[in-house]
Every structure is written in C-alpha cells, then in structure tokens.
Design a protein around this nucleic acid. Structure first.
Lengths: 217, 217
DNA sequence: GTCTATACTTGGATAGAC
DNA sequence: GTCTATCCAAGTATAGAC
C-alpha cells in the first residue's frame, strides 16, 4: 500500500524524514526521563534535547504520554531482547545469577531501569496511563518467570516457591534496587547483594546435589 | 481565640492557627501524592484538597518541595513508630514475617508506601530533593537492619547474609512490591509472596533447630 | 506530509490586603 | 502574623505556514 516513493513506512506519518524525527524524539524522551524524571519530562524539555520544535511531539505522537509510552516500548524491547540472549547461555542457578548481575549493572549504568521506574511511578499522574504501562511491564514478569522456571526445574525449592511468585519478587526487587541505588547515587549495596545471591545460589545447588544423591541411593 | 493580641510567634512554629493550617496542608499533600502521583501534586491540587489558598503553601513551607518533604516526614515517622511496636512483639523469624505481612498490607491499603515511592521517583525532577529524600529513607533501612539482625542472630544464615545487605534488599523489595501492586491495582501477588515467605521462614527455623541439635549432640 | 508560530491553561511564587 | 489577589514562567495542544 505504499502510495508514492516517500511513503513506504506503516505509520500515519510515513516518510523516512518522519521516522528520523520520531526516533530522535524517542531517544530524547528516554534521556530526559533518565535525568529529569517523569515530572521533569515535559514536551519542551524533550524537544530541546532532541533539537526539535515541541509541537512535533503532538504531531508525531499525539501527546507527551504517547511519546513516553513509545520510549518505554523501545527500552523494554531492547532490554528484553538482550536478556534473552544473556540468559540463553546459562544452565545453572549460579550462571543465572551471574547473568543477572551483568544485566543489572548495565541497566543501572545506562539508566534503562530508571525509565521503567519513572514511568511506573508517573503513571498515577496521568489518567489512563496506568494500564498502558502495566501492559509493557507484563513481559518483564513473563521473562523472569521463564528464567526462574528453567533454573529451578530440578530443584526441590520449586515445590515451595512457585516460579510466578518468585518472578514477581525478582522484578519488584529489581525495580526497588534501581530506586534505592539511584536515590543514593551508589550502586555498591545493590551489587553486594548480587554477590551474596551468588553464594546463596551455590549453596542451593550443593544442597540440591546432595538431596538428589541421597534420593538415588 | 482567633488572635491573642498580635501573634508573637515566629514563622516556622507560628500560632495554633498556623499549626492547624500546616497540618491540613501536610495531610492534603499526602492524599494528593497518593492519588495523583508526584507529577500531579501541584500547589493548587494540594490547596484545593486542603480547602486552602495555594499561596499558603509558600507562606508556611516556602515551596511545594518543602511541603512534600514534610509530608514524607510525617508518613515516615508515623510508620516507623508503628513498625517498632509491631516488631517488638516478635521473637522468631516466622513471627517477624507475620508482622511484616500485616504491616505491608496496611501500608499498601492506606497508601503509605505510595508516598515513599512517589517521592523517591519524583526526587530526580527537582534539584536538591534527592539528598533530602535519601535522608528520610535511611531510617527505614536502619529499622529493617535491626529487625533482620535480631531475627537472624541465632541462625547460621547470618554468616552468609549480612544483615545490612538483607535489609537493603527488604526495603527495595517493599518499594518494588508497592510499585507493581499499585500499577496493577492488585495486591494479590504481593500477598501470595508473603505467604510463601512465611513457609520459607518456617523451613529455615526447622533447619536451624536441626543444625543446633546436631551441634549439641 | 512535515514543521513552526501562536493560543490558551496550569503552575510556582510574591506583593500587598486584612 | 496570616491569607488572598495577582504576576509571569512553563505546560499542552493546535491552527496555520511551508
């Protein structure tokens, strides 16, 4: 349905030029959420960073809220994709914790989690934003659940701790650690925690091995 | 009793009338943070709820940010006091989890944690707000650390998990659970988690008892 | 179709009324 | 000392220019 040469993309505003502008605005929205927070991410603040006129936000996205959701989409997709490849290479609980540590460090340093936290906390400020944000956080919980399931599959803990509940806690912890680390400007305590989680993972694996050995005896 | 002579009090403490107005504004700020979020908590929104003129906020508190900090102070003090009495009555890990469950449920239903989350997330929007908020979250971590220490004192887990790190995680988890529950409008998953934590606490206590018995044999 | 200039609303803060 | 009327900056959104 490409009309003329310039209109090959799917969006209502379909030109290549439009796509570039949209991308600039999304990038600027992410950056602004990261260092000004939700309340500081106004159309003017975003546009200034993008080097665009603020009116473009309403032309391309209809509202600031829609642009912010597009920004959340971009971060969410890009991170979940990365998570998938990182976790695919793990086969034990300890390796999963190692992968999670790397992921968390990157998320923290690059401010990806900040975008999530600001959007979740900011959702209550804007009518109708809540469900939209929730729909974009859902995949994070699904991903966490899958990762937890495959790592606890052979563990006796699986009976005691449903993967869904553990995944919910993992995502909550992730968000909470971002909040505290960001607030203090110190990622040290959070990383210490991952180090301890690794030790705990090793302990659990040893216990599991022992249990299995006893059962097969 | 409207005015006893010409009021002789200074601005900050003021007369009884001033104190009433301040309290109304603090209460309204808390309520507004809870259902409009940080970004929606403007001087006008607060004043409307308090039944006051918005200029009063600047007269009594100097700025909206200062009023919000006073609101955070009020919530923080009142909750930590409650936590203290609740946890004082516990002597085992299981009882601690029970107390935490009650506390969490109240926090969630009454929106106390919402105030914390909104202030933490909103802190990045306002220059200089971060350290002020951090100073008011610190006591929460100290409280959590004390509670964790007294409950893990006799446990072999204490060597593996420093109370400070566990407390950091507990506070982070608390905040994260509030965010997710609030976003979904469903506290069910979070409460399920507490139920599982209780089972885990019982398991740990049984393991600890066994270990102790073996050691004394 | 894409973008800019402009309209109108809301927000923070204060000068001045009581 | 306490509160209100008013000011101006910043916000969203659109009408109209290119």
């Amino acid at each position: 349905m490409a009309k003329s040469g310039s209109a090959s993309k799917v969006k209502a505003s379909g030109g290549a030029r439009s796509e570039v502008t949209r991308q600039h605005l999304v990038d600027a929205a992410i950056a602004t959420l990261q260092d000004r927070g939700f309340a500081g991410t106004s159309a003017r603040a975003i546009a200034e960073r993008a080097g665009s006129n603020q009116g473009l936000i309403f032309y391309h996205f209809g509202s600031v809220a829609n642009l912010l959701l597009a920004a959340l989409d971009a971060v969410s997709h890009s991170r979940l994709e990365q998570y998938g490849t990182s976790v695919a290479g793990t086969s034990s609980l300890t390796e999963l914790v190692d992968a999670a540590t790397d992921i968390f460090q990157t998320d923290l340093d690059a401010g990806y989690l900040t975008v999530l936290v600001e959007m979740i906390a900011g959702a209550s400020s804007s009518p109708g934003l809540g469900p939209e944000v929730a729909a974009r956080i859902g995949p994070w919980q699904e991903f966490a659940q899958t990762a937890v399931e495959s790592s606890l599959r052979d563990s006796p803990l699986a009976a005691l701790l449903p993967a869904k509940d553990v995944a919910y806690a993992v995502v909550a912890l992730y968000l909470g650690l971002e909040m505290l680390s960001h607030l203090d400007g110190d990622r040290g305590p959070a990383l210490d925690l991952f180090a301890h989680a690794r030790l705990l993972a090793q302990l659990i694996e040893r216990m599991t091995a022992t249990t299995t050995a006893e059962e097969t005896t």
